[in-house]
């Protein structure tokens, strides 16, 4: 039974339509990756699921309930957390305070200050540093940590590896398995196709606001994804 399914989602920014009938679903404890070129609608999809942007049509169903009308903070309460684009760490709060605020909804579960220190030892070293002064890698771990403090059943991560050093990317991806071990489903938006396929069990490829390809991550091949990325047949002219 899937924890989240979206069906025929459309979304607009003002007059501009960004999503054209997107459907996908995720099972508990699974990692589903969403890949696609810039402007394909990946971040928009996450915003719609997190409740930051209303869907103009279609259904968002979470744990068998339609949640279209729930606001973002209500969705956090029911277990959907988003690690937003740009991380959006509270810049005047310390690492510790950012994590504590993450637990605002007081959802019970595995994650707390202690288990997060174990998950990201780097954060433990920066415990009293103000968000404003954190490095990119620290911010990303803190952003994931802050989202985990709400003990989500569904974790949405927007751009897990963007702008990070390879060492940090490796650490972030290593932590994913720890997260899914708790039964949390992860919906991952990723620029790096190889990374996404390796980390996920299922994948959707987005192009211009539509799903153009989906399936188990192991069944998707790079050339076929390339076709989907740029429109069918594009790879004939490339490489």
């Amino acid at each position: 039974m899937s924890i989240l399914s979206v069906s025929n989602i459309e979304a607009h920014y003002g007059d501009l339509q960004a999503l054209f009938g997107i459907s996908l679903s995720i099972d508990p404890g699974q990692v589903h990756s969403v890949i696609g070129a810039n402007g394909a609608g990946k971040s928009t999809l996450l915003k719609v699921i997190a409740g930051n942007l209303p869907a103009s049509s279609g259904e968002v169903t979470y744990q068998n309930k339609k949640i279209n009308n729930q606001s973002a903070h209500e969705r956090v309460k029911s277990g959907i957390s988003l690690v937003p684009e740009g991380r959006r760490i509270f810049s005047s709060l310390t690492v510790e305070e950012n994590l504590k605020v993450g637990a605002f909804t007081k959802r019970a579960g595995h994650w707390n200050l202690k288990t997060l220190k174990e998950l990201y030892p780097l954060l433990a070293d920066r415990w009293n540093r103000i968000g404003f002064y954190c490095s990119g890698g620290e911010l990303q771990m803190l952003a994931i940590g802050r989202a985990l403090m709400a003990n989500p059943d569904l974790l949405l991560i927007d751009e897990a590896s963007l702008g990070l050093a390879p060492v940090v990317v490796a650490q972030v991806y290593a932590s994913l398995s720890e997260i899914t071990k708790q039964g949390t489903a992860v919906l991952l938006v990723e620029q790096d196709v190889h990374q996404a396929l390796r980390a996920s069990s299922t994948t959707s490829v987005l192009l211009e606001g539509k799903v153009v390809m989906e399936g188990s991550s192991s069944s998707l091949t790079i050339p076929s994804i390339k076709d989907a990325y740029f429109g069918v047949g594009a790879s004939n002219g490339l490489d």
Binding site: V76, F90, F104
Partner: peptide
């Protein structure tokens, strides 16, 4: 303080 820093991010942690 979190809301003062970034209302949208605050919304995303359930505030």
């Amino acid at each position: 303080r979190a809301t003062s820093d970034d209302p949208m991010a605050a919304d995303l942690v359930g505030i």
